[in-house]
Each structure stands twice: as C-alpha cells, then as structure tokens.
C-alpha cells in the first residue's frame, strides 16, 4: 500500500515541487506586502488624520466583508472587460495581498493600541516628532505584540493560496489536481498535498515562535 505513495512521489516530484515553489512564492510575496501595507494602514488608522483614516477603514471593511474568491474572480475575469489583463498568478496574488493587508491592519492596530499612551507622551516630551516616536518607540513594540496574530494570519494565507488553482495558477493544489485526475488517485495525491501544506505550516509556526521568543523583552516574558 505504501508503494502507491512512494510511486507518486518518485514519479511526480518535479510537478509537486514546482507547485510548492509557486505556493511558497505567492505566500511570501503576499506576506511581505501584506505586512508592510497592513502595518502602514494600522498606523494611519490610529494616528492618521480623519480623511486618510476613513479611506483605510473603508478599504478594510470592503476587503474583509467580501469573499476572497469573489475578489480574485473580479480581478481575473472582470477587469479584462475594462482592458486590464492579469495573469492567474497576478490576480491571485493581488487578492492575497489586499486580504492579508486588511486583516493585518486590524491585528497591528490592536497591538499599537495596547502600548501605553504614556510612552508616546514621553517620546514627544523628549522632542521627537510624531513620526520619530512611531518609528523608534511604538513600532518596535507593536511588531513584537503582533507576532502571535501574524503567525495565525500567515498560516491562513499559506492555505488560502490553494484558491489560486481555480483561476489556473500552477501552484501546489493545481499540481495535485492534475496528478490526481490523470492517475485516478484522488485520495492518495490529495493526502500527500495535505501533508506538504501541513509540513510547511509546522515549519513556519516553529520559525515564528522562535522569532517571538528571540524578540521577547526581558522582564516582560509570560510568567508560568
């Protein structure tokens, strides 16, 4: 029985690996830009003027309030009508980035608001501008507090990249689908695909937990 699994892996590993590579690439790009944009949005929401803050809030509500798959369909099938053509990869990754940004903006906002206001006041009293205070005092602490939520978000994101197969991006799920239907080995192939996702998620969780521990501020660790 094990032989089936071994055969699949031995014969199909280039396809699976290629799919995994694209999955990781999409996840990495979406995480990077999602984190950057989400963090900026969070600060605009907390410290920004009314108008930019309202725009950001609107963006977050729209993105969070609509299914990601619908958004990706709009980008991939809808926008070409207006002359904007996207590759499956491009449409999918745009969807991942804006979703990641919207969710992370809210996580990071929570992290920022959990930092005692007194530190901002103290930074300003030293003569720091608001921007200097955010950059040097608030951001380094907010990032630390946001890591657990980010870990969660990254896990979701990695798994959501499997949706990209629907518009035909050649990622891990798509690779699995192709292999499974050609060989009529649905259970075995999808199980292997699931285990690959699981392995990546576990490694990522482990890395982020290590980062969290490494960045922990001495004296503020959890008491056990």
């Amino acid at each position: 029985m094990m032989q089936v699994y071994i055969d699949i892996i031995v014969n199909q590993w280039p396809k699976l690996l290629h799919g995994l590579g694209l999955t990781l690439l999409m996840a990495a790009i979406a995480m990077l830009f999602g984190t950057i944009i989400g963090t900026i949005f969070a600060f605009i929401k907390v410290y920004g003027k009314k108008f930019p803050a309202a725009i950001v809030t609107g963006f977050i509500e729209i993105i969070r309030g609509t299914p990601m798959l619908v958004q990706i369909f709009i980008f991939y099938f809808g926008l070409p009508i207006y002359g904007i053509k996207m590759t499956p990869f491009g449409a999918a990754i745009l969807g991942f980035i804006i979703n990641s940004a919207a969710y992370q903006a809210e996580y990071t906002r929570g992290a920022i608001q959990s930092i005692e206001e007194q530190q901002m006041v103290a930074a300003r009293s030293l003569g720091m501008t608001q921007r200097e205070a955010i950059w040097n005092i608030i951001l380094p602490q907010a990032v630390r507090r946001a890591i657990p939520a980010w870990t969660n978000e990254f896990i979701y994101l990695l798994k959501y990249t499997s949706l990209a197969y629907i518009v035909g991006a050649q990622e891990l799920m798509e690779a699995g689908k192709v292999i499974a239907s050609r060989n009529f080995l649905f259970f075995e192939v999808y199980l292997i695909v699931a285990l690959i996702y699981l392995a990546v998620v576990l490694i990522m969780t482990w890395l982020l937990n290590r980062l969290e521990k490494k960045l922990a501020i001495p004296g503020l660790e959890t008491v056990r």
Partner: peptide
Amino acid sequence: RQRIGFVFQDFGLFNHLTAKKNIMVGLTKV
C-alpha cells in the same frame, strides 16, 4: 521640548529599551 525636561508620575520609560538606551534614544534620534 528638547530644552524642557519632563519626569512623569508613571515613569514613561520605553519598555523595549534598556536603561542605557532609554537615555540614549533622545540623544541619537532627536
């Protein structure tokens, strides 16, 4: 504000910085 020091009731220290760096940050950044 650089010319007017302020000491707070609840200290207002920057939690992610050591005692020394709490003092340095105003000098290097401001």
